[in-house]
Computed example of a mutant assay.
Amino acid sequence: MPLIQITQPPGFDTEQKRATIKAVSEAYAEVTGKAIESVWVTITEVPSEAWGVGGTTLADLHSR
């Protein structure tokens, strides 16, 4: 059973998460020929201060 993990900063509401899970599941099933019912998707939200890009946190980049 395939598991697709999405890691992102917080900010999506419940409907956006539903739509993302649906779209990713459908795309994976279409490309691989797997049954959509076998596709698992998780969305993990990581706070912006826990992400680093180029030696700076996302929180710092967004506050500039």
Rank of each mutant, 00 (worst) to 15 (best):
T7H: 08
T32Q: 06
I4T: 03
P2M: 06
A50H: 15
I21F: 10
V31Y: 12
G11T: 07
Q5L: 05
T14M: 11
L61E: 06
G11S: 07
G55M: 04
A59W: 03
T44Q: 12
L3G: 05
A59M: 03
E45L: 08
I4E: 07
H62K: 15
P2F: 01
L58H: 02
Q8T: 14
V39E: 04
Q5S: 13
A23N: 13
D13L: 14
L3Y: 09
S25Y: 00
A50Y: 14
A19C: 13
D13E: 14
E30N: 10
T20R: 09
I6A: 00
R18T: 10
L61T: 03
K22V: 09
V39H: 03
S63Q: 13
E15Q: 14
A29V: 00
T7G: 08
I6G: 00
W51V: 02
G52N: 03
E45C: 04
G54E: 07
S48V: 10
A29L: 00
F12W: 13
V31S: 14
G52D: 01
Q8D: 06
T7F: 03
K34P: 00
T56V: 07
D13F: 10
A50I: 07
S63P: 02
I21T: 05
E45K: 01
E49Y: 10
P10G: 08
L58W: 04
T7I: 12
V53K: 11
I36D: 05
T7Q: 15
V39T: 03
G11Q: 08
I6S: 00
E15K: 15
S38R: 11
T57S: 03
P47A: 03
K34V: 10
K22F: 07
W51G: 01
E49D: 15
I21Y: 04
L58K: 00
W40Y: 12
G33R: 10
D13M: 13
Q16D: 02
E37M: 11
E26I: 01
K34A: 14
E15M: 09
D60C: 04
T42G: 08
E37K: 15
G55W: 02
V41R: 02
E26S: 12
W40E: 08
I43V: 15
A59S: 12
A59F: 02
P9M: 08
G54T: 07
P2W: 09
T20A: 15
